[in-house]
């Protein structure tokens, strides 16, 4: 009996530690998008709403075809391009996600707040491969440190809902 108890405890502890300590699981993106190559364009060209809305949109096929008439050279497969050209939904994995109880508005932070995208999203614009997890791990203290520095409201209810 005791022979098994300790190994099982070890296994459980390792599992719990794994979940707690490691960052969220990496996620594979459907298309090998190269941010760096597109960096000459403003982020909002594809992530619409980042300056005008609550959410920064994640581009869909029609955003690509606005500029790309034909398959761009490089890593994108023929099949993937056909999908895009036919307007099929691209199954992007969302990496930066806010908990349900947090109210965050892009417009407010990019507009009156004058924050650059990189302050929260890190070096995404320089990445040549699609990120498999959020480049910056955003936690409440990340928000708070900036709010304190900039003299923005630190009222809990201002962001928690």
């Amino acid at each position: 009996m005791r022979r098994y108890v300790f190994p099982v405890i070890v296994a459980v502890l390792v599992a719990v530690g794994w979940v707690l300590v490691l960052p969220p699981a990496p996620m594979a993106q459907p298309i090998a998008f190269n941010h760096a190559k597109h960096a000459s364009a403003a982020c909002v060209l594809c992530h619409q709403g980042a300056t005008t809305g609550v959410r920064a949109g994640i581009p869909q096929a029609d955003t690509c075809t606005r500029c790309h008439a034909t398959a761009p050279g490089g890593k994108i497969s023929e099949a993937a391009w056909t999908g895009i050209a036919s307007g099929r939904r691209i199954a992007w994995q969302r990496l930066t996600r806010l908990p349900d109880h947090v109210a965050f508005s892009h417009r407010r932070h990019t507009g009156p707040g004058q924050l650059a995208c990189a302050s929260c999203h890190g070096d995404v614009a320089q990445r040549t491969a699609p990120p498999d997890r959020a480049p910056v791990r955003l936690v409440m203290t990340t928000c708070l440190s900036c709010h304190t520095r900039e003299g923005a409201s630190e009222d809990c209810a201002g962001c928690h809902r």
Binding site: P99, H101, D155, C156, A157, G158, H160
Partner: peptide, 11 residues
């Protein structure tokens, strides 16, 4: 809160 609303922070 500073504006007089009694807030509840769920998390």
């Amino acid at each position: 809160n500073p504006e007089g609303i009694v807030a509840q922070i769920y998390p």
